[in-house]
Design a protein around this nucleic acid. Structure first.
Lengths: 167, 167
DNA sequence: TTGAATGCAAAGGATTTGCAGAGGC
DNA sequence: GCCTCTGCAAATCCTTTGCATTCAA
């Protein structure tokens, strides 16, 4: 699978659903109602999410379109194997984001808002390659999270503090 | 606490044990045999470790110097709060490394060997600051892991492959 | 028809917690 | 002596798994 690091180039000819279909065929796996349902929900928006969030968005038990928790976990793993999603850990739980057809990026994590913010920087990718080369290390991928506070986080915080001061 | 990102400068006047002692005092907490024992084991060597590894190094149950699992977890959290350790997640479990008195660094993760390798690069820290500034983001810390394969990993792999080919 | 996928319940692994007794200061 | 800390067992959280049934091809 083509997961060598590159500079934000994105080549897409197939939709995620089509690409997953290929993946299934190749492995003798089947396209089911549940997998279709999850493809729909997961690739409708470009936001990262955790399993809990995803399950809350899906129809409840005994509702049409419901997918059981184990199947959600199983299918997300398949999406990762198929190169559709990337997975990382934040505060001990898995977070997923689009990989296929979505430009490579990194994240700020605003500790005041508990929020992930994406950014893209080619210089960074180049520097990482350079550092790796210096150490004879062959890069496959990387994960960078910059912790701190965004402008919004700092402003909300100030507002909250003022409010507290008034009490 | 002084956890603003800086360029590998390290100012240390106290040993980790002394600094932890201060931390305890400030909070009306006590220096116990178990905390002493863990300080000893954790700061004896500069290697990252996970809880399982640490516990294996400690005396077994009913041996002098033994520390129970919950206390290990509790104490590691305290070390993190005290700024002595930094914690991150790898494959769903917590990994700890020295923070206090130890130069800031990042990691390669060799996927062939399952091994973390440290590196230090000031250019990277500067670039992160620059990117953050561009986004009005105030940096508190960061975590970068570069996944791939080290020279050793690639060589061991080749050796293994050859061996397999012979079968 | 046939093997793969699902849902359920239950297991698993890592970490935390309630509580009674032990132990710093 | 007081209040924190410890160890035990049990709970929690997230995720995976075994198995009988359902279902895609």
């Amino acid at each position: 699978m083509d997961d060598q690091e590159s500079l934000g180039k994105v080549e897409v000819s197939l939709t995620p659903a089509q690409r997953f279909e290929e993946f299934l065929q190749l492995r003798g796996m089947r396209m089911t109602e549940q997998r279709r349902q999850l493809l729909d929900h997961v690739f409708r928006r470009h936001e990262h999410f955790d399993v809990e969030e995803l399950i809350l968005q899906l129809p409840r038990r005994n509702q049409p379109g419901h997918v059981s928790r184990p199947t959600v976990y199983r299918t997300l793993n398949e999406f990762v194997d198929a190169g559709l999603l990337r997975r990382f850990e934040l505060d001990g739980r898995a977070v997923y984001e689009h990989d296929y057809g979505y430009p490579a990026h990194d994240h700020f994590y605003c500790e005041k808002e508990g929020k992930l913010i994406e950014f893209q920087n080619d210089e960074l990718v180049e520097l990482i390659q350079k550092i790796a080369a210096q150490h004879d290390f062959q890069v496959h991928s990387h994960r960078l999270i910059i912790y701190g506070s965004s402008k919004e986080g700092r402003e909300n915080n100030r507002r909250k503090k003022r409010r507290q001061d008034m009490v």
